[in-house]
């Protein structure tokens, strides 16, 4: 080795301790944000539990995001369907009913129900049933009553469980009570579904209460639109028949005054004025007949809605399931 070569080698070795020292110092650095990023390894349970935590804290938007992340990264995990159900619930709680229906539909339309309830999953069979109920409730809130009814009938087709059947019939009763607010014929269907609820699971006082409610449904106090129309030949009488006394009095006085005015105008030879007043009076007189018939219909609708409200208040129909109490109770208010 020449002198020059040895010198070069010595020069290189001079830096060697410095390099070593630098590497040593780097290795001593704590593994934090200053010297390096902390590596977090999320497992399926951590991800799922975080999503659950967001859901419990009612941060539904984040919960949906986290549940979706869970489904994406841990698609083979046993809680995937449970996460899908929770996504549906979160959309429902966010009042995004269209997306809620889609989420519940995904669970309902799964071909093999066993996939939905893998061993150890926290999604029990009753949760699948709940998917039907939740979907139906979401459809009601979207105003899709027929689709909601179809969904319940689909559930009735596949279930033989008496409690679930009673829950479905209770739901359908409430559904038709809701429809009856605008369509009186729906009361008949509500009554039909109410009768389908198994009375075996209802105690005696509830049975009596149920029977009385059904009897009340047939004995609602109503006003005949035909009688209202006929009585309104005397201006205001139709309104009075429909218990609108002030309207009746005003209608009587106003129509009478206009009739006298028209008579006087013609009598005085003022035919143009007489014709003008007669034209106006014709409108008010027919308006009185129309208003009387309309009042009878409005009276009937009001009484029907009062009855429905009474049923809602007194006869809370339960659609949720309870493992502690297997007996169906007709006391749960469905938040339509």
């Amino acid at each position: 080795m020449t002198f020059g070569g040895m010198r070069k080698k010595l020069n290189k070795m001079k830096y060697f301790p410095i390099i070593l020292l630098t590497l040593f110092l780097i290795s001593l650095c704590p593994n934090n944000g200053v010297c390096g990023k902390k590596e977090i390894v999320l497992n399926a349970d951590m991800q799922y539990n975080y999503a659950q935590k967001c859901f419990k804290e009612k941060d539904y938007t984040t919960a949906i995001f986290e549940y979706k992340r869970f489904i994406n990264f841990f698609s083979d995990h046993e809680n995937v369907t449970s996460a899908e159900f929770k996504i549906g619930e979160a959309f429902y709680n966010l009042k995004d009913y269209e997306k809620a229906v889609m989420a519940f539909n995904k669970i309902i339309l799964a071909e093999n129900p066993e996939i939905l309830t893998p061993p150890g999953s926290d999604l029990s069979e009753s949760n699948i049933t709940d998917a039907y109920f939740m979907k139906s409730k979401a459809l009601v809130l979207l105003g899709k009553f027929v689709a909601s009814e179809v969904c319940m009938h689909n559930l009735l087709k596949i279930t033989e469980d008496k409690i679930t059947q009673d829950r479905a019939y209770s739901f359908l009763t409430l559904l038709y009570l809701k429809i009856a607010e605008t369509n009186p014929d729906a009361l008949i269907r509500a009554k039909k579904y109410l009768q389908e609820i198994s009375l075996e699971s209802v105690d005696k006082p509830q049975k009596d209460h149920l029977a009385k409610t059904l009897a009340d449904m047939n004995n609602l106090k109503t006003k005949s639109p035909a009688i209202a129309g006929i009585t309104s030949i005397i201006p205001g009488a139709g309104y009075v028949y429909c218990e609108r006394y002030k309207d009746g009095l005003v209608s009587f006085l106003f129509n009478t005054a206009l009739m006298i005015a028209a008579y006087k105008a013609f009598d005085d030879g003022n035919h143009a004025l007489g014709a003008a007043i007669s034209f106006v009076e014709a409108g008010f007189y027919t308006g009185n007949i129309y208003g009387s018939i309309s009042s009878a219909h409005k009276y009937n609708r009001r009484k029907r809605n009062e009855y429905i409200q009474k049923v809602h208040n007194q006869f809370h129909i339960r659609i949720d399931s309870s493992k502690e109490d297997e007996q169906i109770q007709l006391f749960f208010k469905v938040p339509f």
């Binding site: 002030k246 409108g283 027919t286 308006g287 208003g291 409005k298």
Partner: peptide
């Protein structure tokens, strides 16, 4: 329209206000 308007004018501010 005329009939309904007349009916409304008679009812306005009376029983409708309470019912």
């Amino acid at each position: 329209g005329w009939i309904m308007a007349c009916d409304r004018l008679v009812r306005c501010g009376r029983d409708t206000a309470t019912l």
